[in-house]
Design a protein around this nucleic acid. Sequence first.
DNA 1: TGTTGGTGTGGAAACGGTACCATATTGATT
DNA 2: AATCAATATGGTACCGTTTCCACACCAACA
Lengths: 341, 341
Amino acid sequence: MIVISTIRDVAKLAGVSVSTVSRFLNKSGYVNAETERLIKDAIEKLNYSPNEVARGLAGKKTNTIALILPDISNLFFSDLARAVEDVAATYGYTVIFGNSDDQGTKERRYIETLKKKYIDGIIFASNTLSREDSEMLAKLGIPFVCLDRGPSEKNGSVVRSKNKEGAVMAVRHLLDVGCRKIAHIYGPQDLITGKERLNGYVQSVQVFEWYTPTLLEPGDFRIAGGMAATERLLERHPDIDGIFAGNDLMAVGALKALQRRGIAVGCQVAVCGFDGIQTTEITTPELTTIAQPIYEMGAHISRLLIKKIEGVLEEDRIYELDVKLIARDSTLRRKVPNEQG
Amino acid sequence: MIVISTIRDVAKLAGVSVSTVSRFLNKSGYVNAETERLIKDAIEKLNYSPNEVARGLAGKKTNTIALILPDISNLFFSDLARAVEDVAATYGYTVIFGNSDDQGTKERRYIETLKKKYIDGIIFASNTLSREDSEMLAKLGIPFVCLDRGPSEKNGSVVRSKNKEGAVMAVRHLLDVGCRKIAHIYGPQDLITGKERLNGYVQSVQVFEWYTPTLLEPGDFRIAGGMAATERLLERHPDIDGIFAGNDLMAVGALKALQRRGIAVGCQVAVCGFDGIQTTEITTPELTTIAQPIYEMGAHISRLLIKKIEGVLEEDRIYELDVKLIARDSTLRRKVPNEQG
DNA sequence: TGTTGGTGTGGAAACGGTACCATATTGATT
DNA sequence: AATCAATATGGTACCGTTTCCACACCAACA
């Protein structure tokens, strides 16, 4: 067993007081250049590094943040988590993660635990945060930021992308490649992502005479839901030639359902997703999608939280990031323009 | 700002000493039934719950474990992470994660940080842990367990699956569906998964006259690597009718390369992967794979670590979990037996 | 010459728990 | 009546930091 040295050991070896060492470590207050050398040497010799737990207790700062998300095994969130951790590590923060499965109880349990652990701040990528909880956090003085939330409450800063605008882009793209009857599989309406994308779709298509509300079909943001929704759509409207899915997973489901019916994706029916997860490159044909800057969102939200923690930032804001159309083979139709891949 | 109460507040309100409250909280030592009631009431009234940081400092136990993996955005590891967190939460542990990108330096940096934070134990799903590091951890008395490591060193317990056996299963399956010239795209040979799967393949095929070492091609366990390897294989052996890829991502790459050449996957060339990640259900055709029980591995390794932490477990062992063939359309050939899907 | 103000340092009380040790009471045992 | 073990409780040092406060020194300034 190795013996770990403490600040007292350093102080003793350097022949100064504990306070002086502490002042040196934190660059707070005066330390003579000469003394500094002594302390540095002692630290070197003892291979000392400060105990973070003791620091946490004394200073109520643990250099740890938490990331609460619905499910880390969901592609979107694992990408996000990667970004969050990258940025956090850069700033010297450690990341704790928790899966909420979109259940308020689980989320609350995490908050409870995190509070006891003096976590410095929380990122909610989960959307079950209730008003009471957010107020509680505010009262406790725990900084937090949210992903994909509406501006409904005064709940911290929010990072999201231009969902409605993206939906408009998707529809326009489908029209551009020649679609004349476009259906939409929309996501859960308690999620801003589900709602805004639906809004964008409706706004874009309602001017056309072919539009009818039966071209709308609900999905659950998952593959199976996308498949089922597609089946129902084809039942009602065998003549649709374009599907805009509320997210990529449902688009994958649509792809599978179409293929199962022997419908050629791209030629007969064009499919466009939303999110830009890695999986879209894996399907055959590759999936056209409105890509959110997932990594950037994670990096941004993470930086935001850290700024809040360190007091650099005070007012809460909503940040809307740009989305980007990535046209691929799932929307490759007759009138092929000789542009991007 | 809410005022948080301490154990002293509870003691005062209950009219007992701090020690008694502590004894009650930890169920250590005697506490009279009457006193217990008083304490319980006080705790209730003050909405008290013990400060984990102070506990950590006093007891050197933080109820926090760390999960070091190459990249959380990699499907395999995000599945694993989900399992680890689920189990950890059940046992009252919180999970910190870190991306090592398989770089020893990053890994070492995490260890350094975790040590200072009195983390209770570490799971290494990353394979860059050096002998010195593992010895250091042992000296520091920090329990740890590893995923997918060889028994080379005396480094904690190891959880992995039957890689060689799985490779043998893969080859047998390819032969069963009628393949007569099977190539193998192997993974990095510094990983036990890469090595053992290659072993299994070679052992299974070397008895056949068609076998030649040029049917082996290295890959990097990623999609692009799988594509490139497939290209090279087809160059050398245009007549191969089966490909066993060392993991699913490379199998996806093979799929893409074959499709790009207009080769019908399943009919002309059968493809089998290894791992059983979700993505295998998304490709067209769906990918046959040797599935590792990923969730189970994560759950198991996590339970193992917790047992080590709590002293229930002492000797280190290697646990080898069973793999399972999941036959899908990517290996659907002429002689179709009317069995499973 | 007494008063500033910057520089440099140490002592000690927090932070919020745990755990060891001392002490007290009780009923049973010898 | 003395001894003992089980029950019950309190006091306090300790975990390893930070931070506040007191104090000392020195140069400059009025």
